[in-house]
Design a protein around this nucleic acid. Structure first.
Length: 417
RNA sequence: GCGGACGUAGCUCAGCUGGUAGAGCGCCAGGUUGUGGUCUUGGAUGUCGCGGGUUCGAGCCCCGUCGUUCGCCCCA
């Protein structure tokens, strides 16, 4: 026997119930998004590497060490998408849609990041995401967040999450704040953890959500964004909170929330849970007013979020059950020939039906039971000769005879009961 | 990329201070002629993750490697 091959590290198969949970998350999100006027887009799974290197920031971890990049046979640098927003913005520009705003986009699909796998973190993982491109009003931010909340509610997991909210200000506010943070932490440089000393160079905002105890002490009296907000940025921030109140979405302000990717400004938010260990962020996003311009389009405001389908699936309490089937159990050649027509007739009525073709009657009934059938249609030699079938209710054990033509209707009534 | 734990039948796991493997579930076949869910009898199944080492002898000890998992980093 040849060696049994395994899935590649960080990837996994989704079978049966796993895939059912997964599909339920995507279907639910798609349905709710449609209620808010969002249309689904499907962009390619791989893109020109520059689509990501340009948008995410060269120094971000995603770009500097986590991308699945390769050179194709034509010599071009290609990258498996590590996230969805950059591709949507590229598509917006490529299709000339910057002339017809707003665009409200829903997407779902696989993403790829070369990371150390953990629970709820995979190298091929899947996201659902939303982008609202065009509006700059805080009302738009609130609507997108409300939509995210709506999806979590529809999935029955909203009460397992908390919405944390922050503002990063506009570019000017953020730069001023950043400068102040660098100044603050540089003074205490020696007290910082080694990791935070590196963050001081690359991404000083990250120090704010360090888990290191020594860092946290210094974070306590670090300058807050509040002191650096421009009038416009402050108005946006105030407007957002007021709008969220109108939508009835509860939130908690967390000044330490920053986004990992460079393109965010103003609003940053995360729905987090305690139940997934270190991978507690379940749905997160923010405003990215500069990204469309990075893709070669005109300056275009936008806000969006992405959510990890694996993480959402894990929070689902009860997986959606498979539809209840009907078992068709023929015995003997004549009966098997007749069973096909009955089988297809039952399916045509919209019921799930499967036939058992192996073993003696006892085996076939065992199989009917195992697949969870509520009804069995039994056709033996005697029934086949007379053009009838036995319809048995597997819950009660009651059995009655029906003419072959009537079987689908009888079975349908049984299933509905 | 860094640190800890783990890796035994399809699944969940046991295996005492080293003496060439076991349970439950599942699976297969019976308990008389055409009826499942309960019960009962019997049966098959493992290169003990992989490679090396120590030993008369290793699933148990040592080293390496791959994988899983928890935390850090980062992120959805």
């Amino acid at each position: 026997m040849a060696e049994a091959l395994q899935p590649v590290r960080g990837t996994r198969d989704l079978l049966g119930e796993d895939q059912r949970r997964f599909a339920h998350v995507v279907d639910t999100a798609r349905r709710i998004a449609a209620l808010y006027g969002f249309d689904e887009w499907a962009t390619p799974v791989f893109e020109d590497t520059r689509v990501f290197s340009r948008s995410l920031g060269e120094t971000s971890d995603v770009v500097s060490k986590e991308m699945y990049s390769f050179t194709d046979r034509g010599g071009d640098s290609i990258t498996l998408r590590p996230e969805g927003t950059a591709g949507v913005c590229r598509a917006l520009v490529s299709n000339g849609l910057t002339q017809s705003l707003p665009q409200k986009v829903f997407y779902a699909g696989p993403m790829f990041r070369y990371e150390r796998p953990q629970k709820g973190r995979y190298r091929q993982f899947h996201q659902i995401g939303l982008e609202l491109i065009g509006p700059s009003e805080p009302q738009a931010d609130a609507e997108v967040i409300a939509l995210g909340h709506h999806i979590l509610r529809a999935l029955g997991i909203a009460d397992q999450t908390v919405l944390e909210l922050n503002t990063l200000g506009d570019a000017a506010s953020r730069d001023a704040w950043r400068t102040a943070l660098i100044a603050h932490f540089t003074v205490h440089r020696d007290a910082l953890s080694e990791e935070s000393r590196q963050r001081l160079e690359r991404n000083p905002l990250r120090i704010l959500d360090s888990k290191d105890a020594a860092d946290r002490a210094l974070v306590g009296d670090a300058p807050l964004i509040d002191g650096f907000l421009s009038d416009a940025a402050r108005a946006h921030w105030d407007g957002l909170r007021a709008a969220l109140d109108r939508f009835g979405v509860p939130f908690r302000i967390n000044p330490r929330i920053v986004r990992g990717l460079d393109y965010y400004s103003h609003t940053a938010f995360e729905f987090v849970t305690e139940q997934l260990g270190a991978q507690g962020t379940v749905l997160a996003g923010g405003r990215y007013d500069g990204l469309v311009a990075d893709m070669g389009g005109p300056a275009t405001p936008a806000i969006g979020f992405a959510a990890g389908i694996e993480r959402l699936s894990m929070l689902l309490n009860s997986p959606p059950p498979p539809p209840v089937p009907v078992a068709v159990v023929p015995v003997g050649e004549v009966a098997e020939a007749q069973a096909t027509a009955i089988l297809q007739a039952i399916r045509s009525r919209g019921l799930r039906a499967e036939a058992a073709y192996r073993g003696n009657l006892k085996r076939r009934m065992e199989r009917a039971n195992r697949i969870g059938a509520v009804a069995a249609v039994i056709i033996g030699e005697a029934e086949a000769a007379r053009g009838v079938a036995q319809v048995k209710d597997l819950r009660t054990g009651e059995q009655r005879e029906a003419a072959a033509d009537d079987v689908p209707a009888v079975v349908a009534a049984l299933v509905a009961a």
